[in-house]
Amino acid sequence: MTVLVVGAGPAGLAAAHALARVGEPVTLVDKAQRLGGAPILSGYAKLIPSGEWARDAIGGMVRRVQEAALVRVATTTTVSAFEGEPGRFTARLSDGASVPCAAAILCTGFTHFDSINKPEWGFGTYADVVTTTQVEQMISSGQGVRCPSDGRKPERVAILLCVGSRDRQIGREWCSKVCCTVSANLAMEIREELPQCHVYIYYMDIRTFGLNEDLYYWRSQEEFKVKYIKARIAEVTSDGNRLVVKGEDTLVKRPITIPFDLVVHAVGMDPNVDNRALAEVFGVGLQHHGYLARGSAYAGMALSTRPGVFVAGAATGPETIDDSIAQGEAAAIAALGVVRTSAVQAA
């Protein structure tokens, strides 16, 4: 009997691969047309902390799964019904297929925060206010970092951290975990491409946790002269030529108004917009922010609130790619446990 893996981002790819490696058949479904999840679909550039291009790193994971004989891939597919008990679930797919499965792993990921929800920061109003994802795109497409309004090379770039994170005004009371490191990384890439360009990062706290401290936070300052200012920007407007950014430099205690060519929102990770529907279909709980709830902190990291259904990756909260992969593997071993147990019981 197969294991159903929903979502083919880093966590889902890792889970599918891990199960196939130990000889278990997997049905891997994804609502998108392509495999790879956010890093591929959103065109990420170089990943943290490896520095590898998303296309290579995640692309490799995709290929591995596509080549695995035991993995049946169904793209442009969602799960419309799911019932049964651990060891004998039945999933009905949107293409009409019925899939008997011993266990399911939800690796349904997150949704990028939509900056349109913070109108005072200018996204949607000014072409030259963009998101980190768009800058990733500019880099990964090879077109380089340019001002969308006229294609010019920016001379001054501001990266605003915590856009859609740590913000009660819009009900996002979590830290999205990766944006600090991602932003430091992007800042270095911008400086590398455009040495004349000044890059400022506006932060409330810098959370380049663990080994990212020197690799990103320190290196971006020491080698790339990226400037960090402890300030949350109040508003982004325009004087008709350049963007105007209003903040307080909290450490020197002065209100500041500074011109920029390009303002980058370091967008956070929202719960997947489909989570409500997913929770309904799979009969699993959501935690209070709307991510998929974990069943236990200690009994097993991949547990959902329903036996036999496991969770991994950013579906459960903001997560790095590395940890999503680790969680995907953890979910695979948990699912394998169900497969083996039910096989013994059936025998």
Partner: peptide
């Protein structure tokens, strides 16, 4: 009053902070 992250967005946007020795933060 729920806490404070010391981010300064209040002072950044404060009209009085531009003219007085005053900071909501």
């Amino acid at each position: 009053l729920n806490g404070c992250l010391n981010c300064g967005i209040c002072t950044a946007t404060c009209p009085a902070a531009h003219y007085y020795d005053f900071s909501p933060r």
